[in-house]
Amino acid sequence: MSFTIATWNINSVRLREPIVLKLLEEEAPDVLCLQECKSPVDKIPTEGFQALGYTHMVARGQKGYNGVAILSKIPMVEAGSEDFASLGHARHIAGQLENGVTIHNFYVPAGGDKPDREINEKFGQKLDYLTEMRDWFHANKPEKSILVGDLNIAPREDDVWDHKKLLKIVSHTPIEVEHLAETQDSGNWVDITRQDIPEGLLYSWWSYRARDWDAADKGRRLDHVWATSDISSAGHKSRVLRDARGWEKPSDHAPVFAAFDI
């Protein structure tokens, strides 16, 4: 079975329904994982998605904040969700495809502005969330699984526009990178994007604050596609759809794609 998966922090699925439909029409991934949906599940505009063949959905939502959803053309059943760090946030949902592959969709906390948990509660919550992810995957060793989402960390030097300038900026600090690496190791996860694109600057997020995001190109790779080592060799065709960052009323994130033959 061959299928394509995309992950996208949409920054409000209702506000940006038109560009979700544009992506589904033009790129037609078999599975689309959305983060920061900012909607209760029953308010997600599924009618248009279903009309394009995305008749399966699993989701967790809340009004105005967070929220994760997996849309699929392939038959899929819900495979659980976890509230890591007991935040009461809709940040994780899992679905299982008919071929037995489990997809975990995550929206890791952003962590606020200051990389110091003593003065910034949100940064502490981010680290605690990653620690509990790590421990959960240690206890529940994943197999035949894919993990995607806005993990809100750009781990490599070439995942940011300026490594030295961002070492003290939330999303690229050494302690966050260390926590993400421990989480990745705990599930034997392989970074599929970097498996396919091993070298060079690569971004999936550009701030709204930049007057001309494309020309400034001060990006970060915050959005990820991982797979367990037992299926990582089946992943290929990774890419970032950078053009989507320039669509009308865009998210500040661009979709990240990968294909699998499983």
Rank of each mutant, 00 (worst) to 15 (best):
K144R: 14
T183A: 14
I169T: 15
K114E: 15
N140V: 09
D191G: 05
P142D: 10
K168P: 06
R194F: 06
A139K: 00
L167Y: 13
N152H: 00
M133N: 00
D162N: 15
P115G: 13
R156H: 04
P142F: 07
V170E: 03
Y203T: 14
N152D: 09
G200M: 04
T131G: 02
L166Q: 01
R209P: 09
L130M: 12
T173E: 08
I119G: 01
I197R: 00
I146M: 05
V108I: 14
Q184K: 02
D135W: 08
W136D: 04
I197F: 09
D159P: 04
N188K: 02
T193V: 14
E121L: 05
R134Y: 15
T183P: 12
F123Q: 00
S207K: 11
S207Q: 02
E182G: 13
T173K: 01
G112V: 10
A110L: 04
D185C: 10
E143F: 11
H172E: 11
G187S: 15
G111S: 13
K122A: 08
D116L: 03
T173I: 02
W136L: 06
E118R: 13
D150A: 03
G112P: 13
A110P: 06
L180V: 11
L147Q: 03
N188T: 14
P198H: 11
A139V: 07
V177G: 00
A110D: 01
I192C: 13
D116H: 08
L167Q: 13
V190C: 02
D191I: 04
G149V: 04
E157T: 08
V190A: 14
Y129N: 01
R134A: 15
G200C: 12
P155T: 07
I192A: 13
H163E: 09
E199A: 00
K126W: 10
M133L: 08
R134N: 14
S171F: 08
T131Q: 13
G111K: 11
K164F: 15
I197Q: 14
P174T: 11
G187A: 14
L201E: 10
F137Q: 05
K168C: 07
P174D: 04
K144Q: 12
W205K: 07
T183K: 01
W136N: 01
V160A: 11
L180S: 00
I153H: 05
D150L: 03
L180M: 03
I169N: 15
R156P: 10
L202I: 09
K165T: 06
L147M: 08
G111E: 09
P174R: 07
I197K: 01
F123E: 02
L166G: 09
V177E: 11
W206V: 05
A110W: 02
E176M: 04
R209Q: 09
G111M: 03
L147W: 10
P142N: 06
V108K: 06
D159T: 05
H163G: 07
D150T: 10
I197A: 12
L151S: 06
